[in-house]
């Protein structure tokens, strides 16, 4: 079809995916300030931030993967794997335990990335394998038992404060900055977006597409394993059957609500953070007002639909 140099798009259609999530947060905060007792109390805000931090961390990686027109279902299982490995290696010191769990993330990412980039499987199928297998492996490693963690250094990461803010929040914020920087300022970030926009074209341009894709999946898994070890540090026990359960859905939701299109080619890092915050706020608000969890889920569903509707974007014209 001959395209003409005419772009007609209603303003709202541009505005909604980009800033809708922020507007929704502002509205919800205003509502809570007015109608929810003690909403602004520091203890409340603190809990909200701590709860949202792991979702943010996982969603960052998910946003990168989705930016390449992929998806990673295995993040929850990676968290479980990281959690299961921590008590095994804690005897060698906190650093060793952390390194081993991060390494597990790297390995899972390599497998996912290789299946997607080299074998050519569809991301949803490729990562489904480790979505199922990863948690199984984690349960085997942990013997299916819940293990208490008594290492103070590790617990500090999950429950400690630094300059008045929980460590979890600091770590999540730092990772947000790093990922935002990677997306905006690095060659890797630009290549990632180009792959999501048009993989064959990027390949012909001489970009090492497979390497970039594998790196993206590795980053996603490593971020998930960070979330996994932080979860252990926060609840002070390792439970491979519960850590990170269903978090892939929360992460995908955060990314989508944040305005990143599932069709790839664009990543909104801050939007993803906002998406996670919004979903957290919705849940918190409904709980505070004693609404049943079923209605919470309905509201979440509505938000997702609005976000997907707003972000739908034709890939080419």
């Amino acid at each position: 079809m001959t395209t003409e140099t005419v772009a007609i798009r209603p303003r709202l259609k541009n505005w909604l995916p980009a800033y809708g999530v922020y507007a929704a947060i502002v509205l919800l905060v205003l509502y809570n300030v007015a109608f929810t007792p003690n909403f602004l109390a520091w203890s409340n805000l603190r809990i909200q931030l701590i709860q949202v931090a792991p979702v943010v961390i996982v969603a960052l990686g998910m946003a990168l993967v989705i930016g390449t027109e992929g998806i990673d279902l295995s993040v929850g299982s990676v968290m479980a794997l990281a959690a299961a490995l921590i008590p095994l290696y804690l005897g060698y010191g906190v650093l060793a335990a952390i390194l081993v769990s991060l390494l597990a993330g790297v390995l899972v990412g390599l497998v996912n990335g290789t299946l997607v980039a080299r074998v050519g499987l569809q991301p949803i199928v490729a990562t489904l394998a480790l979505f199922v297998g990863g948690r199984g492996l984690a349960l085997v490693i942990s013997g299916g038992r819940l293990k208490d963690i008594r290492n103070d250094d590790l617990i500090f990461l999950g429950s400690g404060d630094f300059l008045g803010l929980p460590m979890l929040v600091w770590i999540a914020a730092l990772l947000v900055l790093v990922v935002a920087f990677v997306v905006r300022r690095t060659v890797f970030g630009r290549r990632l977006l180009a792959i999501g926009g048009n993989r064959p074209a990027t390949e012909l341009a001489g970009v090492p597409v497979k390497r970039v894709l594998i790196t993206v999946y590795v980053l996603c898994s490593v971020l998930a394993s960070i979330a996994g070890l932080l979860a252990v540090a926060r609840i002070q026990s390792s439970d491979a059957s519960a850590v990170g359960l269903l978090i892939e859905l929360s992460a995908i939701t955060a990314v989508v609500v944040g305005g990143t299109p599932l069709t790839g080619g664009r990543v909104r890092v801050l939007g993803t953070v906002a998406g996670a915050l919004l979903m957290q706020l919705v849940v918190a608000t409904m709980i505070k007002h004693n609404l049943p969890s079923s209605s919470t889920e309905m509201v979440q569903a509505a938000i997702i639909l609005i976000a997907v509707y707003a972000a739908r974007e034709r890939k080419s014209r």
């Binding site: 060659v187 290549r191 977006l193 180009a194 074209a201 970009v207 664009r266």
Partner: peptide
């Protein structure tokens, strides 16, 4: 390539990103 849309341009990215893609 022959098929500009499928294998050439990255339609969703800017002119700048498209031109710079191969020489980043």
């Amino acid at each position: 390539p022959e098929d500009r849309k499928a294998e050439g341009i990255v339609a969703g990215l800017s002119v700048r990103e498209n031109i710079a893609l191969a020489v980043l």
